[in-house]
Design a protein around this nucleic acid. Structure first.
Length: 291
DNA sequence: ACCGCACCCTGAGCGC
DNA sequence: TGCGCTCAGGGTGCGG
C-alpha cells in the first residue's frame, strides 16, 4: 500500500471532498474480509451522517462524523479512494489482453472491486473506495467505542523521535527492518520507506535492532521523518495501484534509491543493489555502503 | 514479550 | 493459448 505518505496525500485531497458534506445513499459490495462493520449496517448507519473532519493516524484515515461516530478507513495493499470524475488507467480492471478502452471512455465506473460508494445530499461528486485484493478495511466506530487497531499503534512516524526509537529497539533482536515495519513501534512506515530510510541512513536492514547505537537511532529517526516529508511533498509513490483522489500519480517512485532497484547501481557507490527477504518482505539495499 | 510464519485475496508477468 | 508458478506499498493470529 499506500504507506504514510500516500495516506497523507489522500487525506489532504479527500478532505475538501468529504468535510462539511452529508452522506445520502451509501452503496457497498457484499460482506467480505474488507468490512469490519457489516455492509448492511454501514449503509444504514452512514446515511444522513455529516463529515466533520478527516484525520490520519499511521496508515489509517479517520473520518469524524456528527453524532460522535468515526469511520475508519485503511487502504491495505491495493486500496484506492478517489472522487467521481477521477480518471486513471490504474482505476480500470485490465481486460483480457490488456487493451485499454479508447480515450474518452476511461471515466471510472464502479466495478466489482468498488466496495464503498459514498453519495452526498448536495448531489455533488461521489467518493469511491476501490480495493482489488480486499486487504483494505472499513469500520464504523460508535460514540466512545475504542479500536484495538488504533490503540496498538505507536507514535506517528512523521513525528518519531530518535530517543524513542533507541528505547524501543533495546529489547528487539529482530533485524532493524522488521522493527521499522512494526506499527506498534512507529506507525506509518511500510516496505518502501523502510528500505529508503535505511538506505539514506546507510544502515543495513539486516542489523539486529538492539545493536544500533544511540547515534544511529537518532540518524535513522531523522531520515525517516525526512523521507516521509519529501514523499508527501511529491505526492507519494505510485508503483502499482496507488492513485491520488483526483486520479493523478504521485512522483516519489522516481526518487527511490533502493526499493525495487535490484541489480541497479547504488547511487552512492555504484555497487549493485541487492534484494533479500526479511520478515517475508522483499528488502533492497546496498551491501557496501549500508553497514 | 518477542519471533517467524501462514494466511487473508486478486491480478500481472513470467517460463514452458 | 493456457497452465502453473512467483510476486505485490499490509496486518492479524498462531505456536514456539
Amino acid at each position: 500500500m499506500p504507506e504514510l505518505p500516500e495516506v497523507e496525500v489522500t487525506r489532504r485531497q479527500l478532505e475538501p471532498l468529504l468535510v462539511g458534506r452529508t452522506l445520502s445513499a451509501v452503496r457497498t459490495t457484499t460482506a467480505s474480509y474488507f468490512f469490519l462493520t457489516p455492509p448492511a449496517m454501514l449503509r444504514r448507519r452512514l446515511r444522513g451522517r455529516r463529515v466533520l473532519a478527516l484525520e490520519r493516524v499511521g496508515k489509517y484515515l479517520i473520518a469524524q462524523l456528527d453524532g460522535d461516530e468515526r469511520l475508519l478507513l485503511h487502504l491495505g495493499m491495493t486500496g484506492q479512494i478517489f472522487g467521481a470524475g477521477a480518471t486513471s488507467v490504474r482505476l480500470l480492471s485490465s481486460t483480457a489482453g490488456g487493451a485499454l478502452p479508447p480515450e474518452g471512455q476511461r471515466r471510472f465506473r464502479p466495478d466489482a472491486h468498488t466496495h464503498l460508494q459514498l453519495r452526498f445530499a448536495d448531489h455533488g461528486p461521489a467518493v469511491f473506495f476501490r480495493d482489488v485484493r480486499k486487504f483494505g478495511k472499513v469500520q464504523l466506530l460508535a460514540s466512545g467505542e475504542r479500536s484495538a487497531r488504533l490503540d496498538r499503534l505507536g507514535p506517528d512516524a512523521l513525528a518519531v523521535r530518535g530517543v524513542a526509537l533507541y528505547a524501543a529497539t533495546r529489547a528487539r533482536r529482530a533485524p532493524v527492518k522488521t522493527v521499522l515495519l512494526d506499527q506498534a513501534v512507529l506507525a506509518g512506515v511500510g516496505n518502501i520507506y523502510a528500505d529508503e530510510a535505511l538506505y539514506l541512513a546507510a544502515i543495513s536492514p539486516t542489523r539486529r535492532a538492539n545493536r544500533l547505537s544511540r547515534e544511529e537511532c537518532l540518524r535513522l529517526a531523522r531520515t525517516i521523518r525526512r523521507v516521509l516529508r519529501r514523499s508527501i511533498a511529491t505526492g507519494g509513490s505510485s508503483i502499482s495501484d496507488y492513485v491520488r483522489p483526483d486520479g493523478s500519480d504521485g512522483a516519489y517512485q522516481d526518487e527511490r534509491r533502493a526499493y525495487g532497484r535490484t541489480g541497479e547501481p547504488c547511487p552512492r557507490c555504484a555497487t549493485p543493489i541487492r534484494r533479500v527477504l526479511i520478515a517475508a518482505r522483499s528488502t533492497h539495499f546496498c551491501p557496501k555502503c549500508q553497514r
